[in-house]
């Protein structure tokens, strides 16, 4: 196990370098970052040249990358063009997004798994068909539609929630945005759980559990669910990474100043340092989440052994 973790951590290094290099190059191709600084009008060539020198943009790309990565490892993610440190932006943005992700994951676990179990046990019945249809709708409708619709109905028309989230972004305010963010994954979790439950329900060990005279609830929770959740947990785990970075649309709609919002602003203003910095951290989050999922997999299914 220990050796496996070390090997996985070592494997992360090339992935990390590759991913960051790629994003660094892509941001570089986006265009001249200086151009955006002077607003609508053309920059004065002398100022532009001076700024380029100041930010090290006159050096070749590979050198910029090396300098950048060197700084990253000392905890310096550079400075945004407005003078704010990128780490400062992160320290305000990440807690907000983490809270949003927690809300979303909780929705996936509680609602997704519950619906999956209920439908999996009643396959082909009306409950099953309606939930299945509903998940199909949720999967097909883009997040910005569900998001805007809920904002309009709950926030503007009925006034149940504030249409836009304050800078504090408390858990209470994040319930509806979290649901919107989770919606598509939630539908997938429901379907995944349903399939898994329906499949395992006919398995021999469930029959054994019934033959042992165990109460129905114990058969379902301890024997059926435990086995069925292995694939679902994997999905939810990898989804953590996706939700953290993929909240751009949801954060825009509800005006949440989290990671997605900062990334969006960064791309809009061609703010290289912000974009690269945030993406670098997201790459790390994704890698660590994946490793944790793989380790959790071995805990849930003792037949899997890592060496």
């Amino acid at each position: 196990m220990g050796r496996y973790v070390v090997r996985r951590l070592l494997q992360m290094i090339p992935v990390f370098i590759g991913a960051t290099l790629l994003i660094f190059l892509m941001v570089n191709v986006m265009g001249d970052p200086i151009a955006g600084l002077c607003g609508e009008r053309q920059c004065d060539p002398a100022t532009a040249a001076q700024l380029k020198k100041e930010f090290g943009l006159d050096k070749p790309v590979w050198q910029q990358y090396l300098t950048y990565m060197g700084n990253v490892f000392t905890g310096d993610f550079g400075t945004a063009f407005n003078g704010q440190k990128v780490t400062e932006l992160m320290s305000t943005a990440f807690p907000v997004t983490i809270r949003l992700t927690i809300v979303a994951i909780l929705f996936e676990i509680v609602i997704g798994i519950t619906l999956g179990v209920v439908t999996g046990l009643r396959r082909g019945r009306p409950v099953d068909t309606s939930v299945l249809l509903f998940t199909l709708v949720v999967i097909s409708v883009p997040t910005f539609v569900t998001g805007l619709l809920l904002q309009l109905l709950l926030g503007v028309e009925w006034g149940w929630i504030k249409p836009s989230v304050s800078t504090d972004a408390t858990f209470g305010e994040l319930i509806v945005p979290g649901l919107v963010l989770a919606s598509v994954s939630l539908a997938y979790v429901t379907r995944l759980t349903r399939t898994s439950i329906a499949e395992n329900r006919r398995s021999d060990y469930v029959r054994t559990a019934i033959a042992k005279g165990l109460p129905r609830q114990r058969v379902i929770v301890r024997h059926l669910l435990r086995n069925s959740l292995i694939s679902v947990v994997t999905f939810i785990g990898t989804d953590i990474g996706a939700l953290m970075g993929g909240a751009i649309v949801t954060e825009r709609i509800f005006n949440i100043h989290g990671v997605g919002y900062q990334l969006y602003q960064g791309i809009l203003r061609q703010n290289t340092q912000t974009v690269v910095g945030f993406v670098t951290v997201l790459v790390l989050v994704f890698l660590v989440a994946n490793l944790l999922v793989d380790l959790l997999y071995a805990v849930l299914d003792p037949r899997i052994r890592y060496a």
């Binding site: 021999d204 060990y205 559990a209």
Partner: peptide
């Protein structure tokens, strides 16, 4: 049951 491997809970 016949097949003890599949009839016992694997986890």
């Amino acid at each position: 049951f016949q097949d003890a491997l599949s009839s016992l809970n694997p986890v």
